[in-house]
């Protein structure tokens, strides 16, 4: 007989693993991936491939030469960062800039803190915000989406996002009803076809992924509900005050990176609070900041900044909002 092993209980383990969670997220991103390739064509494929390969490379290289630990590229987290980063940039972004973004995401936002699980900010978002601030022109000129096969020259035509149109229009004194003519319809927003980053193109595809993650219990309901709820309520109140000055909540929901941010980036386990109450607060804060930036801020889009700002509050939220202890009354 071989030697017996002694260890503390429990002696069985559930079937969950970091890998399963990470690849679950990757699976959830597939619908949006397909839709983005459908609308942006070869440009999308190029951006996604380069971003993923660059992220995996940086993770591998840092782990091998700087940390000198076991390779962690198999756990799927770098893959997610790669895809998310690609989802957050326009399809005509030059290769070099994508690689810079990948470097910032993996090397600065993640590995410098100690790798998976230790980063305070969502790596893909840090990469995106870095690119947005460093290369504002490149990052905000978007190819107008054209369904695949209808035209292969999409890269040539660029235009502003609907949020950009609204922001610029309102700034120059126009009213919402006047601007509506220039905007895509809400159905276009839901199904796909609004100008913007790769992943922002179709709300419905993102929603399918989100439902998959909810069923698989990769994400919980708290953050998306609080996030979307606070955006709807806040913009709804503004809309009721003056529908000519503030655009309707539905427009906010279907445009820009809100769905992408809410389901795929705000729910990132590493950078979101741990207790149920904390997650609600986190979602609420992110929603409010998003609307503030979208309506009054300098940038047309505020989801990424909102999530990053709330990421910074996570340790505080974790301290302040503990789960309800058994046998206590509160």
């Amino acid at each position: 007989m071989n030697l017996l092993t002694i260890s503390g209980s429990p002696h069985v383990h559930g079937d969950s693993s970091v890998k399963k969670i990470m690849y679950g997220v990757v699976i959830a991103m597939i619908p949006a991936l397909i839709v983005s390739i459908y609308f942006f064509g070869i440009g999308a494929v190029k951006v996604i491939l380069i971003s993923v390969i660059a992220c995996l490379f940086f993770e591998w290289a840092i782990q091998k030469f700087l940390i000198k630990g076991k390779s962690t590229i198999g756990d799927g987290s770098a893959l997610i960062t790669g895809v998310l980063l690609a989802f957050n940039v326009p399809s005509n972004l030059p290769i070099g800039i994508i690689i810079i973004g990948a470097f910032v995401s993996i090397a600065i936002a993640k590995m410098s803190f100690g790798g998976l699980g230790k980063n305070p900010f969502n790596p893909a978002l840090v990469g995106r915000v870095f690119l947005l601030v460093s290369f504002p022109v490149l990052m905000t000129s978007w190819p107008i989406p054209k369904p695949l096969f209808s035209s292969f020259v999409t890269d040539a035509i660029t235009g502003p996002t609907p949020l950009g149109i609204v922001k610029e229009g309102l700034k120059s004194g126009e009213t919402v009803s006047h601007l509506m003519a220039q905007l895509p319809t809400y159905t276009e927003g839901i199904i796909g076809g609004i100008g913007g980053s790769l992943g922002e193109v179709s709300v419905i595809a993102l929603l399918i992924g989100a439902i998959y993650m909810l069923i698989k219990k990769i994400i919980t309901w708290e953050i998306p509900t609080a996030f979307l709820g606070s955006v709807i309520i806040f913009t709804g109140v503004l809309y009721l005050i003056n529908p000519e000055m503030y655009i309707s909540p539905i427009f906010h929901l279907v445009t820009g990176g809100l769905a992408l941010g809410v389901f795929f980036m705000a729910t990132d386990m590493v950078t979101s609070p741990m207790s149920s109450k904390g997650m609600l607060i986190f979602g609420l804060g992110a929603g409010v900041i998003t609307v503030i930036i979208r309506v009054w801020g300098a940038y047309p889009e505020g989801v990424s900044f909102a999530i990053l700002i709330m990421n910074a509050f996570v340790p505080l939220i974790n301290k302040g909002f503990k789960p309800k202890r058994f046998g206590t009354v509160n």
């Binding site: 092993t5 260890s7 002696h11 383990h13 693993s17 970091v18 969670i21 756990d75 100690g114 790798g115 998976l116 699980g117 230790k118 386990m269 590493v270 950078t271 979101s272 609070p273 741990m274 207790s275």
Partner: peptide, 13 residues
């Protein structure tokens, strides 16, 4: 009975 190698906590809660 083999315990799996512990990894970094991903704060999944």
């Amino acid at each position: 009975e083999k315990r799996l190698e512990p990894q970094n906590c991903i704060r999944c809660a």
